[in-house]
Computed example of a mutant assay.
Amino acid sequence: MKATKRTGLAILLAVASGSVFAQEIRVTVDGDPINFSGVEPITRNGRVFVPLRGVFESMGAFVDWDQATKTINAQRNQKDVRLTIGDRYALVDGKTMFMDEPPMVIQGRTMVPLRFLSESLGADVQWMSADHMVAITTGSTTYNNHSPNTGTKAVVMVDKTTVLPVALDQELSSNQSQKGDRFTATLQGQNDTYAGIPEGTKIQGKVVDVKAKSGDQPGMIELKFNKMILPDGRTANIKGSLIGLDDKSVEKNDEGIYTAKSTKKDQRVVFAGYGAGAGLLVGLLTKKPLEGALLGGVLGYLLGEVDRAQKKPADVHLKRGTEFGVRLDEPVTIGIE
């Protein structure tokens, strides 16, 4: 009876606030479906709200959350948008714009008005009522490995096993990040290009598995990478995996380009909560999900041995700016204007 009353109260509160969870609503970006973990899209007074992470990174936008000011900053193709939790007024390229509904926090997740933010970032938004689907079109050209845009001035082919040095754009942690969370990292280099890829290019990734610290088992995060976002907003699909930038994992040629020393495919590397700082890159010797992976006999160290007796297991905390490598598991072709 008490459980029934609590359920009824929750429904009453949701209706009273004007918010309705809408699990049937689907969202696509340039035809690719977005998978939500944790909090699903909701409707509030006829407006669709989505979790901050996921949709906008897929659009090629850089999104940052300022916990102190409760402010969301999003940039894409020279567009700059700033939203604040609970505030109906937003800044779009420095101009004040009014929103029907403000951003909000639900179950610890930041929820933003999908149409307003998408259109402010230069995308087209269509509501497909028959399919209960929001279709977002970014207008960016996507390249595959065989069909670059013939209007480009140059075509760059980047070989597989090339390693892209990147710096993380958003924080990730094994006790807060969730499976399916998307993020971006910015290509690092000393010149205007790296392996022919322009400076400022972002690599989009996804948390494919995560496990919080439990007892003597460290927290772990497994990442994969699926898109390269050029500074002009165009994108190229990639297949990339996590790798360290240490001498045991990569070698650097005379032009400063890293290459993976191992040519084996499907090497499973994760961040584990060992050692000083955020976490240690380790090789996982099992295909089982992290939730079922025990430390004993499972982790093969890529970056040196860790004295477990002196360094206790912990959760992984990857701060913004954390550097690591993205190994290209397949060659990629991109067009440069």
Rank of each mutant, 00 (worst) to 15 (best):
Y194P: 06
Q178L: 12
R182Q: 07
A167K: 14
L164P: 02
A135W: 04
V166N: 06
V125T: 10
S129R: 10
N191C: 00
S177T: 15
S120V: 04
A212P: 03
Q217H: 11
Q126C: 07
Q204Y: 00
K206H: 05
S174K: 05
L168W: 04
A130E: 15
G215F: 01
G151A: 06
L164C: 01
S120G: 01
D192F: 03
T162N: 02
S177C: 08
Q176C: 01
V208I: 15
W127C: 09
V166K: 10
T152W: 04
T141V: 15
P218M: 13
G215S: 07
L168M: 12
M157L: 08
F183P: 08
H132Y: 11
S173E: 06
D216E: 12
R182L: 05
Q178Y: 04
P218F: 13
T142R: 08
M157H: 11
V134P: 00
G215E: 00
N175S: 15
E171G: 14
P218A: 13
D181N: 15
T142C: 00
L187S: 01
V166L: 07
D169E: 11
A130L: 10
R182A: 09
D209H: 12
S147K: 15
G122E: 00
D131A: 15
L121C: 09
V208K: 10
A167G: 06
Q178D: 03
G122W: 09
S177P: 11
N149M: 03
S129M: 05
G189Y: 12
S129A: 13
T152G: 07
S129W: 03
T193R: 11
Y194T: 00
D124R: 15
Q126V: 10
I197K: 04
V158L: 04
L172H: 07
A130T: 15
D216N: 15
G215V: 02
K211Q: 14
A185N: 02
E119A: 08
A185V: 10
V210L: 03
S147Q: 14
T184N: 05
L164H: 05
G219C: 06
D159S: 12
G139R: 12
T186F: 05
L187R: 05
L164W: 03
Q178T: 10
H132A: 03
L164V: 00
Y143P: 00
A135I: 09
S174Q: 05
V158T: 08
K179I: 14
S174H: 09
S129L: 06
G200Y: 07
V158R: 01
